[in-house]
Simulated assay, not measured.
Amino acid sequence: MDTLAAPTHTIDFSDQIFRVDFSPYEWSQNVICIALANKICVGNVKFQEEEDLEEELEFQLLREFHHETRVCAVAWSPETSLSVLPKCVSFASAGADYKVRLFSSDLVAIHTLQVLCGHTNYVNCVTYEPEGQFLASVSDDHTCKIWNIKEDNSCTATFFLTSPGMAVCCHREEVGKLLVAEKNGLIHLYNVLSHQAILSVDSGCIPLMSADWSPSNSLRVAAIAGGELLVWDISRPSRPIDARPIHVEGGQLLRFSQLSDQYIATVGQADLQLKVTNVKNKHPVLVASLQLAGGLTWHFRLPYVCVGNDRKLCFWKVATK
């Protein structure tokens, strides 16, 4: 029986949290997006790091953005920065009305909202190309769409899938490539310019609910499919380098640590739990009980994993040494 870990920090909200996402960029690493029922809260999180002081967390709400429908996914734009003037907060959301929305604000007077239409079913994941050249989205309509957000927000390419698209990822070291994961267990790496699949792997497990591309190692890809955690080295993609049961009644969410390809956070059943796995160890390094899971994210530089847990934003500090 795993010992359940209490959160290191919590922040209370008035409504259920549906999605949460830390900025994955060094220059905006403390900015966090929290999606509630009909609004998105953008805040700044500061952790007390000095060893001789009691650990503290400061949360500053920067702005609330009205959202017409329930949020299914969020992603940060690399244009987001609070360190220079004018400040810029820029992110994308996917709503339950099948639309993708682009939000931008200087947090003072200029606030813009653009709506991208084209999907015909729920959008499960959105991601920005690391230089901000395009946005990608995957949907239950069995497509992955590429949006030209630098010019006219038009859909410039559609990749047709064989099942619902569950995850889409870009990598800062792999310009022009796109990772797409399907619910039927297939994972594809596409060349965005040629619109061709470079490689495909089959997890052999269904349903695949989430996948990620390790930010710290472009050769590592992981997925949660059925109750299995699977990890591939895509230079040798014929079979996973690690496959283990992790959530016996099915996994829902998965994210690599920003700091290391060895640490993977997952959320799943039974008894809704967060688990952090070090792939070199047999047992999880952290297990925590959840009530309602709304999103999963890691801090860019610090060993904190964060989950929206009903009306609480919960942070766990993960021992990585």
Rank of each mutant, 00 (worst) to 15 (best):
M1H: 09
M1Y: 08
D2N: 13
D2Y: 14
L4F: 12
L4Q: 08
A5G: 01
T8V: 02
I11Y: 09
F13T: 08
Q16M: 14
I17Y: 04
I17T: 05
V20L: 14
V20A: 15
P24E: 03
A35R: 00
N38T: 12
I40L: 12
C41T: 10
G43P: 02
V45Y: 00
E51M: 14
D52N: 12
L53D: 14
E55I: 10
H66N: 11
H67Q: 10
H67S: 12
T69I: 06
T69S: 12
C72T: 09
A73R: 04
A75T: 08
P78L: 11
E79D: 15
S81C: 15
S90F: 12
F91P: 07
F91T: 12
F91V: 11
A92N: 04
S93I: 01
A94M: 06
G95T: 07
Y98I: 05
V100D: 07
S104N: 12
L113I: 07
Q114S: 14
Q114A: 13
Q114K: 15
Q114L: 13
G118M: 06
G118A: 07
H119C: 08
H119K: 04
T120M: 09
V123S: 02
T127N: 06
E129Y: 00
P130N: 11
F134A: 03
L135A: 01
A136P: 10
S139Y: 00
T143P: 03
I146R: 00
N148K: 11
K150Q: 11
E151F: 02
N153E: 04
S154A: 07
S154D: 06
S154V: 01
C155W: 08
T156P: 10
A157I: 01
T158P: 01
F159K: 00
F160A: 09
F160L: 10
L161A: 07
T162C: 13
G165L: 08
R172M: 12
E173Q: 14
L179H: 05
V180N: 02
V180P: 06
N191K: 06
I198C: 11
S200F: 08
S203D: 08
S203W: 02
C205A: 11
L208T: 04
L208E: 01
D212E: 07
W213G: 01
P215F: 04
A223H: 01
A223K: 00
G226R: 04
G226Y: 03
R244H: 08
H247T: 09
V248K: 15
V248S: 15
L253P: 09
L254D: 03
Q258K: 14
Q258Y: 14
S260Y: 05
S260C: 11
Q262L: 13
Q269V: 10
A270H: 15
A270C: 14
L274I: 01
N278Q: 10
K282N: 09
V287H: 05
L290T: 05
Q291I: 14
Q291R: 13
Q291P: 06
A293W: 00
T297V: 10
W298N: 00
W298V: 02
P303H: 02
N309T: 05
R311T: 11
L313D: 03
K317N: 02
A319D: 13
A319E: 10
A319R: 09
